[in-house]
Every structure is written in C-alpha cells, then in structure tokens.
Design a protein around this nucleic acid. Structure first.
Lengths: 187, 187
DNA sequence: CAACTGCTGTGATCCGGATCACTATTTTTT
DNA sequence: AAAAAATAGTGATCCGGATCACAGCAGTTG
C-alpha cells in the first residue's frame, strides 16, 4: 500500500496510470532526529508530505524567543508556505523532532500537476481549504482564550502529540511560557 | 467594466461565453450600514464577494467580548468559511460597517463552477493560497508581537482602513483593549 | 437645537502570566 | 558509569496591558 496514493485518493480517485505518473514527481527522504529541512534565509524550494516522524515548523523573533507555527505528523504537508508560493527566502525553520521519512516536492512540479490534472488542482484546493479552516481556528484561540483553554483545545485536537512531545515544546506552540504551562498541570 | 470579471481575470483569462455563464450564478445585493449578512447560529449558506463598502467578520466569546477575524473591502471574499465548507451553523457575525454592495454565491454553485471549469478550480485555489498566507502572517503577529508592533503592521497593511475605521474596531481586530490602543497614539 | 448614543482620551487599580532563579529529575553523550 | 545537557517543577518578583471609572466630544436623530 502506497501512502501517497492513499493520501491523494482520500480526496479524489486516480487511475493506475495517473498515479504512476504523479508519483515520479515526488522523492522520498529519510530524516534524522534534530535534522533541519529548512532554515531561515534558505530558498524555500520544497514542500514536504510527512510519511512518518514528527516535525515542527517554527520561527525565532528578534529577542531570540521561539514560536511554533505548526506541528506535522503522518499525512501532513509542511513548508514555509509564504516563502514557497511567493518564491522568497524562508523566515522559518523546519526541524525533525522524531525521525521519519518525508516526500519532497517543488513549486514547479506542484503547479505542473495542478495544471495538467484538474483532479490535482482539486486535491490541492481541498487541502488548502482544510488548512485555511485550521488556521482560522487557531487565530480564534489566540485572540480570545486563556492558557488553560488553549492547552485543553490542543490536547483534544492532538491527544497523541500531547503525550509524545516535551511540554516545553507544547508551550512554544501555545504561546505560553513553559512555567505557566507547568503550573497548569499541577492545578 | 465588470468587477467580477476583472476580479477573476486577475487570476485566469475567461472567454465572453465562459464569463456570461459564470456570472449567472452570482446575485448582487445592496447592503446598508449596520446590516448583518450572517449571524451566529445561522446556516452559513453564502459566501460574499465585496464590490463596495466595508464589512467586519467577528465573533463574541462567552464573556461577551468581541473579536474581529477579518475586515473586508472591495475584491475581498468573506463568509464563515468553517461553517460554509463543512455545512455547519455559523459561529461568527458579518456586519456592514460602511454601506455598499456584494455578490452572493452558495457552496453548491461554487463547487459546480470549480468542477465544470478547471480555470475556476484554479482561481479558487489561488484565492485560498493568498488567504492561507495572510492567516499565517496573522498568527505570527498574534504569537510574538507587542500591541505596538501589531498596530504598526496593521497600519502598513491597511493604511486606508486605519483612517476609515473607528479605533475601537481596530482594537478588536488587534486583540488589544481600546484603552491600550488609545495610549499608543498619545506616545 | 436639545437629547441621546457612540467614540476617544486619560487616570487609577489590579491581575495573569512572563521572567528570573534555583533544584530535582531524566535523557543523552562519551 | 560518569559527565553533560535537556527537561520539569516551584517559588518570588515584576510588569504590561486589562479593567474600571469618568469626562469631553462628535455626530446622529427626533
């Protein structure tokens, strides 16, 4: 069973020929724990589909504080999408938290696939729709909720990540200090 | 000159026949100041393309505080996209701040257009891409910046809205109290 | 034009969470 | 197995911004 095919067919059916062709544009890459797939200042030439492992997409502000934009696990896409689509330099880092494997694609082949196959255009639109909704929900959470509520929502959305990730890292995702998060547990 | 056509053709060219057909799915609607296009609890059956006027998309939390998710002016789309795409009840309000006109569309015809025309699928994907990037930027701003920086970024991004909107409303967008924003001006 | 309603500025107080500092524990490295 | 590094808990302090309260000013609206 092929994860990429399964992933695309969750949205739209493919013939064997179509899939065989599409597949040629993706290359697999093994990633070690601690490895960076992207660093600030790089050209964001690639986007990644996670096959296994855990990754974080984060940035560092002027004061050196770290903020996590996104976690990624199996079947999630990741890149610095602003830089990727607009062909600018990356402003974020992508680091592997837990070793695994990813599929790599470029903007050129992404657009080529979308142009050649209405199906793939549709697939990418569906993925973007989900992403858009997820970001909107996160904005709501950041605007109006307490650290408590943020943590609860996070735990509900990603029960597995809540277990597997150090709390320090969860705090960076929630936009809360490590200490505050720790005190949330004790209470 | 037709605004809808211009708006779509910014992304992808259309023949006269194509446009004539597409056009039939949109209906124009005049909106008065203070009028609501959507309220919490409604079915989010429509999405709107703004032809003129200014609108705000906002929600109200349990404590009755108001938070603005999005402003919209000419050529911007708006809806409760989570509810619209997933066919759930709306959790947000859309209110007209400055009278104008909008084009109305439904999920069914949106999907119909995307299915019938690869071009339109592409158009919607392009719009979602922009939207995704904008939301990502906003998340960064909410995670790591001070009220000061938020205000400056907002003013740079929407110099016109900064002028036309009451400061109270800008504060609700920035996630900052009215008083804090006011003090930012005096300093 | 008088009365009401919404907007803005400014002071005073309060509080949640950041920051700092240190210790204990676990994990990784060598 | 020892040393080093990352992680986690917890207390003490501090501070930015929220909240509360009020006053001056448009700007509608009857």
């Amino acid at each position: 069973m092929d994860k990429l095919r399964q992933h695309i067919e969750d949205i739209t059916a493919l013939s064997d020929e179509e899939y065989a062709y599409i597949k040629t544009f993706f290359t697999a890459k093994k990633v070690r724990k601690g490895q960076y797939l992207l660093s600030e200042g790089d050209d964001a030439r690639y986007e990644y589909l996670v096959l296994s492992g855990i990754y974080k997409v984060f940035y560092i502000d002027e004061q050196g504080r770290e903020f996590i934009l996104q976690f990624a696990k199996e079947n999630w896409w990741m890149s610095d999408y602003e830089a990727f689509f607009r062909e600018k330099k990356a402003t974020v880092f992508i680091e592997c938290i837990d070793a695994g494997e990813v599929l790599v694609n470029t903007l050129q082949t992404r657009e080529k696939l979308a142009t050649e196959f209405h199906k793939m255009e549709h697939f990418y639109r569906a993925k973007l729709t989900n992403g858009y909704i997820a970001l909107q929900q996160r904005i709501k959470l950041l605007l109006s909720s307490t650290p408590q509520e943020r943590y609860e929502t996070f735990s509900k959305m990603y029960p597995d990540l809540g277990q597997r990730l150090p709390k320090k890292i969860i705090a960076e995702y929630l936009g809360v200090s490590r200490e505050t998060l720790s005190r949330l547990y004790s209470r």
